[in-house]
Simulated assay, not measured.
Amino acid sequence: MLAFLPLFLRVPLAALLIALNTVLHTTPLFVVALLKWLLPIPAFRRGCNHVLVGLAESWIAVNSGLFAVFTRTTFHVEGLEGLQKDGHYLVLSNHQSWVDIPVLQKVFNRRIPFLRFFLKSQLIWVPLLGLAWWALDFPFMKRYTKSQLAKNPQLAGQDIAATRRACEKFRDMPVSVMNFVEGTRFTVDKHARQSSPYTHLLKPKAGGVAFVLDAMGQALHSVVDVTLVYPGGKPTLLDLMANRVPAVRVHVRQRAIPAEFLTGDYENDRAFRARFQQWMNAVWTDKDAELARQLAAAGSD
């Protein structure tokens, strides 16, 4: 609708409206989060959780509407059939850009339970959003370098323990736990340094997936396997607001979780770890082929 505006007007106006939308939604969210913290009554807290998620879903819906108003980006989405708003899902996706997050939010908002991402601990300091993510029970992970672990061996395993603590909160509520399995955004340099066997993907990091399955066990219904494709090239958030992302293709596939992976010791059982990694590698081989198929389909449009 407003994609005709010149770039020097469109981008600042879009950014201003997104910022205003964030302030308008996070203000009541902080009030509800404070009440939830002050009154540790289980029934009251459950009610607060519903309000918090409703505010977050409204924020996402408005942001998605703004992107539709300011851009001509077209979305090709496949595979949403059968997903449930009250399900318990582990959502796995490839990771190419920060644009992945608003795309995933747009595609899944109010179709499955609210997406909760594993975030680096430093992101809690992002103005407004950091506190909002904390209030919404996003799991914050503190990663340690090899040198830090060498100096302080007691830090080993703390990230795993944090994963388990975060997932325990989700066992008794509808949830979609989101994991970018590659652990970082795809670049050609990273692909080359890894000697990745996949054409379009980095190697999957299976450990985080295994720990979520271990922590949540039978509470999960299935894996929601998402393949994100940008036929025009890997975009930035500025590219999105500047209307330089002509199309986004999203393929969704539900996968049953093999029963043997719901109970197992990924950290200490070498045979179990090998089987789990083999399964994840097979999922990633399928994803690489799907990404190639989507690129070919985009080229024939």
Rank of each mutant, 00 (worst) to 15 (best):
H95C: 06
V175E: 06
K106I: 08
L52G: 00
V99A: 12
R72Y: 09
L220N: 02
Q154P: 02
W279A: 10
V224G: 04
L9W: 11
F75N: 01
R171C: 10
A292N: 12
I160S: 12
K169Y: 00
S195H: 13
R293D: 14
H200K: 10
D172F: 08
P113L: 05
H76F: 08
L238V: 14
G87I: 01
R164P: 03
A274G: 14
A297G: 09
T199M: 06
R275Y: 15
P102T: 04
T73P: 04
I60P: 01
I101V: 13
A161W: 10
A289V: 09
L66M: 07
A135D: 00
P258W: 13
L155M: 06
R171K: 14
I41N: 08
G299I: 10
A242V: 12
A33G: 12
R165D: 03
A206C: 07
A292F: 12
T145V: 03
A296Y: 09
R143C: 00
E182F: 06
F70P: 03
K190S: 10
Q154E: 15
Q294E: 15
I60M: 11
Q218I: 03
T163W: 06
L29K: 02
P174C: 01
V107T: 14
V62N: 09
R270K: 14
Y89S: 00
I101P: 03
L291K: 13
V51Y: 00
D288R: 01
Q122T: 15
F44A: 05
H200C: 12
R111V: 06
K151T: 00
T199I: 10
K203H: 12
H76V: 15
P174H: 03
E260K: 13
V126H: 03
L20F: 14
V126F: 14
T71Q: 04
W133T: 02
G79T: 02
G79N: 01
L17P: 04
P197N: 08
Q154S: 14
P40K: 11
V62F: 15
D286F: 10
E290L: 10
P174L: 00
R249W: 15
N281W: 05
A259M: 10
Q194W: 07
E57K: 07
D214V: 01
H88A: 10
R171P: 01
D159L: 11
E260N: 07
V250D: 05
G82S: 00
F44R: 07
P6H: 11
L20D: 01
V209E: 03
L149Y: 03
T187D: 08
L29C: 03
K120A: 04
V226S: 10
N94Q: 06
Q278I: 08
E260W: 15
M241N: 05
I41Q: 10
R293I: 09
N49R: 15
T227V: 15
T27V: 12
D225F: 08
V99N: 10
V11Q: 06
W59T: 00
D100H: 06
A43V: 15
Q218Y: 01
T199P: 01
W98C: 11
S58L: 15
L34I: 11
K234D: 09
E182I: 04
L213Y: 04
L291E: 11
S176E: 04
S58D: 14
L129V: 07
I41L: 13
A162T: 10
V248W: 08
V99I: 09
V69P: 00
Q278E: 15
D239S: 07
L20S: 09
P204N: 07
Y266W: 08
E168C: 00
A215D: 01
S300Y: 08
A156H: 12
Q148F: 04
P153G: 04
